[in-house]
Simulated assay, not measured.
Amino acid sequence: MRNFLPPRSVLLLALMASVAMARERFPSVRSVYVRNDPQERAEQLFVTRDVTTVLRFQQPCTDAGTKILGWEGRFEPVVCAGKRVLIEPVQTLEPEDRFLLVVRLADGTEVPFTISGSSWKEGEWPDQQVNVFLEPDAPDALRKQLEEYKERERELWEQLRVESFTGSSENHTLAALLTQGAVRFTPFVARKAWIFKKEDSNIQATVLTDGKEKMAVLFRVTNRDPSTPWRLMDARLFVLPPGFQPPLFVGEGRPFALRTDKKVIPPGETGYVAVVADRSAFDSPQGPTKLFLGIFRHDGMMAAHVTLDRSLFKK
Rank of each mutant, 00 (worst) to 15 (best):
M1P: 12
N3Y: 13
L5H: 12
L12D: 03
L13F: 10
A17Y: 04
V19Q: 12
V32W: 02
R35T: 14
Q39D: 11
R41M: 05
L45T: 03
F46W: 15
D50F: 14
T52Y: 05
T52C: 02
L55K: 09
C61Y: 04
T62A: 08
T62M: 11
G70R: 11
G70L: 09
E72R: 07
E76H: 08
V78R: 04
A81N: 13
A81S: 14
P89Q: 08
E94K: 14
D97E: 06
S118G: 03
Q129H: 02
E135Y: 10
A141H: 00
Q145C: 04
R161S: 10
R161L: 14
T166E: 15
N171I: 00
L177T: 07
T186C: 05
A193I: 00
W194Y: 10
N202S: 08
I203C: 02
T206W: 03
L208I: 00
K212M: 06
L218S: 02
P229V: 06
R231W: 01
P241I: 02
Q245K: 09
K262Q: 15
K262A: 11
P267Q: 06
P267H: 08
G268R: 04
E269S: 11
T270P: 03
G271C: 11
V273Y: 01
G294S: 15
V306Q: 00
L308M: 05
F313C: 06
K315F: 12
